[in-house]
């Protein structure tokens, strides 16, 4: 059935790749500019600092990206982090001899349980994701207060082994960075090399067709929220370990950053689109800005405004590119 002229596949594919290349170039230019103004930027310590800062963000943003790919959103990640961090810190205070690895597993299990509740309400209860997670955002945060009765856990109440969980460098890089890299690699393989991973894209791309193709849509949707909870649980343990405390306002407002990293990294809020490298680059860009502002003596108060501007630029540029591709 000859003569079907495909509409210039190479250019279109190039556009799909544009996002990662675009952010990479943007990151390089930004990095170069900052390095010119502040040579301290180009030191090993500073790089390590940036990586340390974006490790937790990357983990949660990757999970957030999976949720957004199914055309959902999880606003409750910050409260899940806050709650799990508090519970884990309580356990560590109570029994400091608890092996650190089991604490990590415990945190992930607790997070997964919270995520499963989101998942059930959204997939089987058919509550719109934004409403359900808006609700659990305040429910889980309220539970932090109820749980701790307003108290918090300080650095001296936590065992040394627990604090080293994030910062120790037995393998050269801080553990936390390695954990984030391993997590990213796992998500990459999950999304690209398993059927369930591909089902996530299919469900976000065309939910009805997914159902007709025999994909268990509800199960896939349930799963991404469960994973989002699990990632938040992991992030919570790392958070408590890194900042050596658990407070009632731990990670407050963090949900915004995770969505920002995903969106800046090219995950489409209408579902079906997004890659692991893109999200990591998105997180890196956010981390870079956070790191660079003080170095170039711009008031850190600009950080939030810069994040917001970045989100807006990302969606506007995407839109312009999509339009020019269609018009041609």
């Amino acid at each position: 059935m000859s003569a079907q002229t495909a509409p210039r596949p190479h250019r279109l594919r190039a556009i799909a790749r544009f996002r990662e290349a675009g952010i990479s170039i943007f990151i390089l230019i930004l990095g170069a500019l900052v390095a010119l103004r502040a040579p301290a930027f180009l030191t090993m310590t500073n790089f390590k600092d940036i990586l340390l800062n974006i490790s937790i963000l990357s983990i949660v943003a990757l999970a957030q990206a999976m949720v957004i790919i199914t055309h959902g959103i999880d606003l409750s990640v910050s409260s899940m982090i806050g709650l799990v961090a508090m519970m884990v810190a309580f356990v560590m205070k109570q029994s400091p001899e608890f092996p650190v690895i089991t604490v990590v597993l415990l945190g992930m299990a607790l997070g997964a349980a919270l995520g499963a509740l989101n998942g059930v309400v959204i997939s089987y209860g058919k509550v719109p994701p934004i409403i359900a997670t808006l609700g659990t955002l305040s429910i889980y945060r309220g539970m932090v207060f109820f749980y701790s009765q307003g108290t918090w856990i300080n650095s001296f109440e936590l065992p040394r082994s627990f604090k080293l969980l994030s910062k120790g460098t037995p393998l050269g890089l801080p553990n936390m960075v390695i954990i984030a890299l391993v997590f990213a690699a796992l998500v990459y393989f999950f999304l690209n090399y398993t059927r369930t991973g591909r089902d996530i894209y299919a469900v976000g791309s065309n939910p009805e067709a997914a159902q007709m193709a025999g994909i268990r849509r509800q199960r896939v949707v349930f799963l991404v929220y469960l994973l989002s909870g699990l990632a938040s649980g992991l992030a919570a343990v790392l958070w408590a370990s890194r900042f050596e405390s658990a407070q009632t306002n731990t990670a407050l407002g963090f949900e915004l950053q995770t969505v920002a990293a995903a969106v800046v990294g090219g995950v489409s809020i209408s579902g079906g689109v997004g890659t692991v490298p893109g999200v990591l680059l998105g997180a890196l860009l956010l981390g870079l800005i956070e790191n660079a502002l003080p170095l170039v003596r711009i008031s850190p108060f600009w950080q939030l405004a810069a994040q917001g501007l970045l989100i807006l630029i990302a969606v506007v540029v995407d839109n312009l590119i999509a339009r020019s591709a269609k018009g041609k």
Binding site: A202, S205, A209, M212, V273
Partner: peptide, 9 residues
């Protein structure tokens, strides 16, 4: 009859 492809795949 109605096409059931996945536009992003």
């Amino acid at each position: 009859q109605e096409l059931s492809l996945f536009p992003d795949l």
